[in-house]
Amino acid sequence: MISRTKEKLLLLSPILIFFFGLMIFPTIYGWYLSLNRVFLHTFEFPVFIGLTNFMSVIRDPRFHSALAFTARFAIITTIAQLAIGMGLAVLFNRDIPGKRIFTSLLLLPMMVSPALIGVMYRLLLNEFIGPLSYYTGLNLLGMRYVVGTIMVIDILQWSPFAFLILYAALQTIPKSYYEAASIEGASRWQSFLYVTLPSIRAFIIMVLVLRGIDAFKTFDMINVLTAGGPGTATTTVSIYIYKMAFQTGNIGRATAASLLLLIIFSVPLAFALKRARKEEAE
């Protein structure tokens, strides 16, 4: 009989080999690029410059504003998605004839890639031929509304994902809990607050982690719609990195910026994950 450690290694070996084989080269290459002065057109001739790229990114005010905007965007959309997803889950958690079709329809937005959703909103918000701006009479991509608009679009696309998780979560709560609560004379709101919410804490954290990460990375939808403008008003970190990599052409600095991002977020992420697992285990 082989030892347990060896067994675990054996079980994990396929995925480790896969990741190692596929990602080890890009990862090392990425770190290497981040330590070099290297542009798209000088890709063959990198020049080692140590941590200069990291320092430049840390000092770049545009990186700070992108980071601040992204944080705001991620926090607001994630919380909104959690709230809306929860509302929808409660709404759908009852017998409705034809629920299957409505559920499928509700999940539809997350099956279209954000880039294409962005394109369709570009048409909807088109000032001349787009219904949305025609009927509201508002310039929703103008300076006053643009941040709100892209947040709403993101919320509309991804609340269904939160709904999916939370709807599933509601199914796990035994009916007896609610019966007990109603015997004690709890109102609906009270039983939601004291029965539902505590029972699905792990799922709420799951929504926050999964959506938080993806919201922080948001790229294609915003890039298609606003290209990060007006000015740099809607520039997320991903758009900053993208422009750094492919328009400024500074691959070294772009790679440094994304590694920096990874370092900054690995700590809270690890913490959240640990918590999520613990909650789930309970």
Binding site: L12, T27, Y29, G30, V209, T255, S258, L262, L273
Partner: peptide
């Protein structure tokens, strides 16, 4: 290893696209 794997999701994919 889970944290590390999920952490990978944070990296904008196009940065590693050339490697």
């Amino acid at each position: 290893p889970l944290g590390l794997l999920l952490g990978l999701r944070l990296v904008p994919i196009f940065v590693f696209i050339i490697p």
